Simulated scan of single mutants.
Amino acid sequence: MKNNAYIVFCLLALAWGLTFLFNKTASTLISPMQIVMIRVIMGFLPVLVFAIARKSLHWQHLRYLHHFVIMSLLAATVYYFAFAKGISLLPSSVAGMLSGAIPMFSFIAAAIFLRSEPVNMRSVTGLLFGFAGVLVIAKPWNTGVSGIDLTGVLYVAIGSGCVGLSFVYVRKFLSPLGISPIALCTYQLGLASATLLVITDFNGIGAIFTDWKIATGLFAGLGLLGTGFAFMCYYYLIGKLGAVKTAGVTYIPPVIGLLTGSLILGESVSAIDILATAMILSGVFIIQSGRTPAPVLPTPSASPDVRAHNLPERA
C-alpha cells in the first residue's frame, strides 16, 4: 500500500507540473477566463462523483455557504484566473518557476492572521531567500524587449497570494467545523463553476476545438487530471503518507514546469533561472523547517484530511 501511495505521489506531481504547459498552449486559442471555466467545470465533475460516492455532502452544510463562496473565489476563480492570465503573458517555464513561491505567500498570510504561526529568524531568512529568487527570475531591472513581462509576474503573485490566504481562511474558519475536505472541495469548485458560467464571455471559445491536441490538454490534462484527479490524489496521499510527506509534492511542479517549457515549447532557460528556482525552493524548505506546527483542534473529525488544508496547493 505504501508503494501505491508513492506511485500516486509521482502522478500528482506530474499532473500539477503539466498544468503550466496545458495553460500556455490553450492561451494561444482562447482567453484566460475561458480556460479557467473549462478547467473548473471539468475538475468539478469527478470531485462531485467522488464526494457523492463517499456520502460527504450534507444539506446542513448550507449554513456555511458564505464561507464556501469566499473559498470558491480565493482558491478557484480568482486564483486560477490570475495564474491563467499570468501564464498567457509569460513563458510557461517562468510561470512554473515563480509558482514555487506559493508556500511563501501562505507563510506570510499565516504570520499575519494566525497567532499559532510565530515568526522566527529562520523563517524570515527563508522568506527573504525565496523572494530573492523571485526577483532574479522577474528581473525588474531589465526593461528591454527581452525582459520578463512584469504584468504577468504580478498576476502570478496575485494568484499565489489568493491561494496562500485561502489556506489561512480554511484553518481559521472551516477546519473547526469538521466538514470533510472533499466536501469543501466540491462546494468550492461547484460555486466557482456557477460563477464562471455567468461571468465568462463565450465569444470565440469554439476555437479550442481547432486543435485537438490543445483541446485534449485543456479538457483532460488541465481539467480532469490537473484539477479533479489531482484533488482526489492529494486527499488520498494525506491519509496514506501524512501531511508532512505529502507536502513534499509541492517542490516538484516548478521543476516540471521549467522542463516542459524548455523541452516541449522551446522556451529559453538560463543557468541563472535554474539557480533562481533553486533559491525559491530552498527558501520554502527553510521556512517549512523553521515553522512550529500549529496545534490541531480537538474536534471529532480532526483527521489528517482536515489538517491537509494547511498545505500548499498547485496551479
Rank of each mutant, 00 (worst) to 15 (best):
Y80C: 11
M33F: 14
F44Y: 01
L11H: 05
L73A: 04
F50A: 13
H61F: 07
K85Q: 12
F83L: 00
R63G: 11
H61G: 02
Y79R: 12
L11P: 08
T25W: 10
L45A: 10
L65V: 08
C10T: 15
A51Y: 02
M37I: 08
H58I: 06
F44H: 06
S72K: 00
L74P: 00
F22C: 00
F83Y: 13
A53R: 13
I35Q: 01
Q34C: 01
L45W: 09
F22Q: 09
G43V: 09
V36C: 10
Y80A: 13
A75C: 12
I52V: 15
A53K: 14
A26N: 08
M42N: 05
I70C: 10
M42G: 12
L62N: 02
T25G: 04
L73C: 10
W59Q: 09
S31K: 15
H61Y: 10
I30H: 05
N23Q: 15
A26L: 03
L73D: 02
A15G: 03
R54K: 15
L12I: 08
V49E: 15
I52Q: 12
H61W: 07
N23M: 15
L73F: 13
I70F: 10
G43A: 11
F22Y: 09
T25M: 06
G17F: 01
T19V: 11
L11S: 10
F20A: 06
I52S: 09
L14A: 13
T25I: 14
H67F: 03
A13D: 03
A82M: 15
Y79D: 13
V49L: 15
I70V: 15
A53C: 14
T77I: 03
L48W: 08
F22T: 07
R63A: 10
M37G: 00
M42K: 00
V47W: 05
W59N: 03
G86R: 00
G86S: 10
L14E: 05
G17D: 03
Q60K: 14
N23H: 14
G43H: 01
L29H: 10
M33E: 14
F44W: 05
T77S: 13
T19A: 12
I87G: 07
H67Q: 04
A51K: 06
Y80K: 04
A13E: 03
Y79W: 15
L18P: 09
I87R: 04
T77M: 07
I30N: 05
W59S: 06
L48S: 01
L57P: 08
P32L: 12
M37C: 02
A84N: 04
V49D: 12
M42D: 08
I38T: 02
L18H: 01
Y80H: 15
A15D: 07
I35S: 01
G86A: 01
M37L: 14
L29N: 08
G86L: 13
H61D: 11
S27I: 10
L14R: 13
I30C: 00
F68H: 02
A75I: 07
S72G: 11
H66F: 00
A84Q: 07
Y80M: 04
K55M: 04
S27F: 13
F44K: 04
Q60C: 09
L18W: 05
F68V: 14
A76M: 06
Y64K: 01
S56D: 04
F50W: 04
T28E: 00
H66D: 11
L48A: 02
I38Y: 01
V47K: 08
A82K: 06
T25F: 08
F22N: 06
Y80L: 15
I35T: 12
P32T: 02
A53H: 11
L12W: 12
H67K: 03
